[in-house]
Design a protein around this nucleic acid. Sequence first.
DNA 1: GTAACATACGGAACAGTGTTCCGGTTCGCA
DNA 2: TGCGAACCGGAACACTGTTCCGTATGTTAC
Lengths: 200, 200
Amino acid sequence: MDALATPSPDDQDSDHPKRADARRNEATLLAAAARVFVANGVGAPIRQIAEEAGVGVGTVYRHFPSRADLVIAVYRHQVEACAESGPELLDNADSPALALRQWIDQFVDFLATKHGLAEVANAGDQSFARLHDYFLDRLVPVCAQLLTAATEAGEITVDITPYELMRGIGNLCIGGHHDDRYEPRRLIDALLDGLQSPAG
Amino acid sequence: MDALATPSPDDQDSDHPKRADARRNEATLLAAAARVFVANGVGAPIRQIAEEAGVGVGTVYRHFPSRADLVIAVYRHQVEACAESGPELLDNADSPALALRQWIDQFVDFLATKHGLAEVANAGDQSFARLHDYFLDRLVPVCAQLLTAATEAGEITVDITPYELMRGIGNLCIGGHHDDRYEPRRLIDALLDGLQSPAG
DNA sequence: GTAACATACGGAACAGTGTTCCGGTTCGCA
DNA sequence: TGCGAACCGGAACACTGTTCCGTATGTTAC
């Protein structure tokens, strides 16, 4: 769980606060990475991010030991927002199943707008294991809550684990950009229909 | 289309038949690649395949200009078999929808047993574009036939293109091994249920 | 203000991979 | 047997991730 505790800009409140230049560089790196990710996807070379930030590669690795840590840091806010919107949607929607659909829709939006994020977060790529885990640890519980509510309301009739559902959604989003013939949302809708169908 | 015509062991019947050593090496390479793919997945280093075959890397590239060509050659028979079984299943099954399900089940079997094939065939990996195209060119028409039949029989009520369905199935299979918590088939079943559900 | 120390920086260097290229070898044919 | 074409092997290049260490900088104590 807390293996996922990633350095956030404001946890240098220990005995030895970070040096000013270090804090500055971390912020610069986050901004540079965000720009590069938008332009070239989350798989962009580390060197490119270092150059964009005007620092050496060593500095990148010191702040973010793995590329996954960098990606997590860049998208942390959005993932948190997504996680927090779950209970909210559950309270406000007309039905739990609807809330689940809205929540998933939001998640798909997030994945779709991040060039290559789904590919890398869900595929077996070992170097992104931490990213994979972060997404799952943060979002599966939320998904579980929505899924349970929908099941208890009798709206979801098929047995499926929250983990599987999240994986499935993530997988379906792979390649959703740069191919007009493939629109993940249609399949995701069908999948959710299937979970609600009494056919079994 | 025929941009996918891949060198098969027996198309040197042109004016300049391949030399004996070349033919021998191609066969050796195919066998070696098959072994390495099973052991280390289809993403294994080219050097490893060359070593396993006892040839230089240059030889690998001469016979198979891209890694995708090698993968295609290794799995060609199975893909062909899958493609050919489509019409057969349609003839023999109780209903078109059932035939579609059986066909997809077979395809999933194929993907699941090939270590990392789904990852590489469906993800955006540029160097595997030919593999992606081969799968699609060969299987989408078959899928289309089954899908059309099922739709005309009124068993499939949701609008979806064969291309999208194949992509979706392939995507869902990603990461299906080495993770007991994720069983693609459950989601694929749900997806197909969704396509059949009148809910829309 | 400055000395001394810890911290952080930059980028060279190493390792693994894909891909190309070419000198040398082998095959097939006359 | 001799010769040209086809083929082979692996060195060499390009690109990427990752580590390491001499140097520079910020921070603190005096």
